[in-house]
């Protein structure tokens, strides 16, 4: 136990160490997100991430939003385990045909009002996989999309700034 406390104390709070210009951007961005969320969602939005066929690169970066550097929950943005608890669906991948019905049902299970964010180049336009016998391509070919965050994969910063774009709508 002593080791845990010692390491925790010596590590300190990395979340607040945004002194360099690029990381200061994040802080500013995050605060702005919080302002919009406060206005539109009374302080919090719940996100359900759905992998509809991605290569798992986007998932790695979405995961990173929860690490202590970005700590996305401090802005009132949190990930939930069910679409029934969600305000926003964060959809990655070209939609594989084998996931098409699952994605539609997830969308239907999400209560209104809801927003869909297509994350990554594949979700935006089909990316490297395009449209084929196995892939429907862009998420917008299956469900209505409100916002696109491009990148292969988008960095955690791009994900944060994308969510900001959604809030401004």
């Amino acid at each position: 136990m002593f080791n845990i406390i010692k390491k925790t104390l010596t590590t300190g709070v990395v979340t607040e160490r945004f002194k360099t210009p690029s990381d200061a951007d994040l802080e500013q961005l995050g605060i702005e997100i919080k302002r919009h969320i406060d206005k539109n969602f009374y302080g919090s939005i719940a996100i359900r991430a759905v992998d509809a066929g991605s290569c798992n690169g986007c998932e790695l970066e979405i995961h990173a939003l929860n690490n202590p550097y970005y700590d996305i929950e401090r802005f009132g943005i949190h990930f939930v385990a069910s679409p029934r608890h969600a305000d926003v669906l964060l959809v990655t991948g070209p939609v594989s045909r084998h996931m098409q019905t699952a994605l539609l049902r997830t969308y239907e299970a999400t209560p209104n009002p809801k927003w869909v964010v297509a994350v990554g180049d594949c979700a935006a336009c089909g990316g490297e996989f395009g449209v084929s016998y196995a892939s429907c391509g862009a998420v917008s070919s299956v469900i209505p999309v409100d916002m696109v965050i491009a990148g292969c994969p988008p960095t955690p910063l791009a994900l944060l700034s994308g969510l900001l774009g959604l809030m401004k709508k």
């Binding site: 066929g53 290569c55 790695l60 991948g93 084998h98 996931m99 996989f129 084929s132």
Partner: peptide, 27 residues
């Protein structure tokens, strides 16, 4: 569930394009 037809869409690619696709078999 995430079958994306990678083997099929690889056919006809140039070496550079195949390398890009291979880089997205598993991110």
């Amino acid at each position: 569930y995430v079958h994306k037809g990678i083997e099929k869409i690889a056919e006809g690619r140039s070496p550079e394009a195949l390398a890009r696709l291979a880089g997205r078999v598993s991110g």
